[in-house]
């Protein structure tokens, strides 16, 4: 792969909290990440992490209310691709989400926490800030220091 020192300015997308926007969000992130030369396999991981974050916002922060707003801000600099995702839904306590236990889900016929586990596995850093009554934000970071 050629080295690419191109920098994108911040790119921003604001969408309503609806699951039919997930593919639009993925395309937006894919396009911006490809533009700065991030390898396709890493982009795939990034878009899955962003999808999981936005799905959690739609289902949990906005509880499927379709008129909420999700802001996605992308930035690439110093070999770091960061995605800041902001919502104004119910406050979120990431520490209340345990790591998934498939055996337990098997017995309970339900599933949860998989998305957050995937985000943590696929990204180098996942940082939550929740200001109750104001906003939640999650910052996803992928370091691209390794030569591909």
């Amino acid at each position: 792969m050629k080295t690419n020192n191109k920098k994108i300015k911040e790119k921003e997308l604001v969408v309503k909290s609806r699951t039919n926007n997930l593919s639009f969000i993925r395309d937006f992130v894919y396009g911006a990440a490809a533009e700065v030369g991030i390898p396709a396999d890493i982009i795939e991981n990034i878009i899955l992490a962003v999808d999981e974050a936005c799905t959690n916002i739609i289902k949990h922060a906005y509880k499927s209310y379709p008129e909420g707003e999700i802001t996605i801000r992308l930035k690439y600099s110093n070999k770091k691709f960061t995605i800041l995702i902001v919502d104004h839904g119910a406050p979120f306590k990431p520490e209340s989400v345990p790591d998934p236990d498939l055996q337990k889900y098997y017995r309970q016929h339900r599933i949860g926490g998989l998305g957050m586990y995937l985000m943590k596995s696929l990204m180098d850093e996942v940082k939550y800030v929740s200001i109750p009554g104001k906003y939640n934000q999650v910052l996803l970071t992928k370091n691209l220091t390794v030569t591909h």
Binding site: L22, R26, L48, D51, E52, T55, L102, Y105, Y106, R107, H109, R110, I111, L114, G115, L118
Partner: peptide, 16 residues
Amino acid sequence: AYISSAGLGVFMAFIE
């Protein structure tokens, strides 16, 4: 082409 955890959850919902 693509699967997220929401898709994985479907398999869990029916397996038992």
